[in-house]
Design a binder for these strands. Sequence first.
DNA 1: GCCGTTTTCGGCCCGACTGTTTTCAGTCG
Length: 576
Amino acid sequence: MKNAEIARLFEELADLLEIQGANPFRLRAYRNAGRTIDGLTEPIAVLAEEGAKALTALQGIGKDLAEKIIVVCETGELPQLNELREQVPPGVVKMLRIPGIGPKKVAALYKELKLETLDQWKAAAENGDVADLKGFGKKTAQTILEGLEQIEQAGMRVYLADAMPVVEEILAALSKCEAITQVTVAGSFRRRKETVGDLRVLATSTDSATAMNALAEHPQVEKVLAQGDTKQRVRLRTVFDGSVKLEMDLRVVPDKSYGAAMQYFTGSKEHNIAVQRRALDRGLSVNEYAVTRDGEYVCGRTEEEIYQAVGLAWVPPELRENRGEIEVAERGEIPELVEVSDIRGDLHMHTTATDGKASIVEMAEAAKARGLKYIAITDHSKRVTMANGLDADRLRAHWKEIDKARGKVSGIEILRGIECDILEDATLDLDDEVLSEADWVIAVLHYGLKQPREQIDKRLLTAIKNPNVSIIGHPSGRIIGKRPGADITYSDIFKAAADHEVMMEINAHRSRLDLNEAHAAAAKDHGIPIVISTDSHSVNGFTELQYGVFQARRAGLTKNDVANTRTFKQFQKLLR
DNA sequence: GCCGTTTTCGGCCCGACTGTTTTCAGTCG
């Protein structure tokens, strides 16, 4: 069983218990455990085999959860969950996803009206049964009807990169509003998560009504969903991914609360809980308006003040996930994270020789225009027939074209590369003779991603041990929100890569971001040089670079951890 | 459920908004 599957069991357990009115802190413990398991780079089963002690060493895993994890790893089942599933039908759990309907209302409707399926919920909301129930009314019935339509569209999150232009457009408009002095986006957007759900915008103003009107009247806003003195919620008009519409919160606070609000609304929730716990230890209280002591304002104008008040160095938003950054900040050892401007080379891109849209020269010119000093042209190998992949003869001819391009474009180095498939039988798509002539070989999985873990590991290990392979590209093969990616024993792969001096890629494409942040952090721990590349298929592809850098930052990577921040000369020394 | 060098019991982040109420519970972030 994969870590993600085991994590999901604990999340489901929490959902079911929530409907039954269980202690909210117990639910949090289960959800934290799910999150912890999901974030591990090693299979939790390996720890489970070592015994309860290895498990309780993990943050938030105690005696009870350790036992449950061991049972799951041994039997593939969680007995307590099976019992609960019989008590609460799946349709009831699904109702928790309706915005505005929580566990108490779900429980009441299930108990009083015996509503079990989506259709029954819809009928009861329409015929007045819901509205007649004590504590319910017409508005709640309406909320359910609207919500039922929404939850049909699973996964209300969109790629950060897709949301970015819309958010920037709205922020630009708000910053022109005279009533607004400062405006910024917080939430998971500011933390540069791979995907974003609700957008959280923060403004300072002495006239919140005018500030909120500015957002309400923005052409991007379809509907104002809620509005109070300091908080407004709207739905945006833009349709993402065919069906998803995002909602945006605007919070308006005074200047002296800007830092406190930034800190508070940037999250993550888990990070904030840790910060606020530290505040309590110091006799302080932190909320979105200020740090206070006995109700008296201590600070709140800047984020730095907030962190200082609780004895921490400022934490970059990308690291605020309560995955150890608090302890690092306490020691004053927050790393200087890599920045987009640090990147000097892009080592994964395609041309018209396979499925790219531009020539070698056009790609080189475009890369140079973006300030890059070196690139690798890495078209597909022959297995990728859909993309017109290259065999040995065409590849050698292509490299001759690269040699010619080197003469035409000055000021940028061009490596003769190849993106070579690792076939299902754990051989490489091109033989060693031609691969040995390359400057740069990216080995990748494209096919057979659903093979069992043992075979996937074997394929990756074979590639890593091949002396011609420079790097493993988009290691998991996942497409965010659409395809899970191969089942990999990362700890084994990273060990081998470190031994054989093979690098690992962070593929910067918005839908890949592969390695993900947990695995990139683990690769760094193994001392493996990481390369952030765009996998560009056109001259516009280079804009994706920033998303790869965001991913690297969330993994805690510094300039030094990223090989393509080196000068070309230094980078060459890393090649074997 | 987890956690602890002031604690092995009693905490566990906290405020805004809505809807259904006559003072507040539920939900959300």
